[in-house]
Amino acid sequence: MKICILCLSVFFALSCSLFQKKLTRDDPLVLFYKTDPLPETVASLKLTERARENIKDKKYSKALALLNQSLEIDPDNAFSYYFLGLLYHEKNEPKRSNGILERAKLLFREMPFWLSACYELSSQNWLKLGYGHQAQEDALKAEALVKH
């Protein structure tokens, strides 16, 4: 009976993880946290999400202002650094983008999904800068993190 319950529990847990919707880069950012983040982080993330939408709409000035505000509230908001990196990338400033992405990578240590996104973006930046080898290295890192 105990073994039966144990097997059922394992099966249940596995099926939950299998059927659980995989988060994407467009999902609410707070969902990526394993534990409830601090109020400052929650508030900061809401601004980051708005910045994300503005970047998609190519409203870069609005996005930049929102990211500044988000960092004012929580200067360790990894997502804000990532989207700032994305913004610099879209404004064709790959060097600046890579600089800020290094910061994001440090803060995303516990989030391989987003760490992979950072490497993917920095790979694109390296290509723009003419560093093919470095671009390939980062692309492989991104891939490895996704598989993990």
């Binding site: 000035s61 202002a65 500044n68 960092l71 700032l84 600046r96 600089g99 800020i100 290094e102 440090l106």
Partner: peptide, 25 residues
């Protein structure tokens, strides 16, 4: 300075943080 805006609302200067890794963590 984060922003410089003209009287009619045009953004003349905008600046966000920049970072450069110069030494190991």
């Amino acid at each position: 300075i984060k922003h410089v805006v003209s009287p009619d609302g045009a953004i003349l200067t905008e600046r966000a943080p920049e970072a450069k890794k110069v030494v190991s963590e």
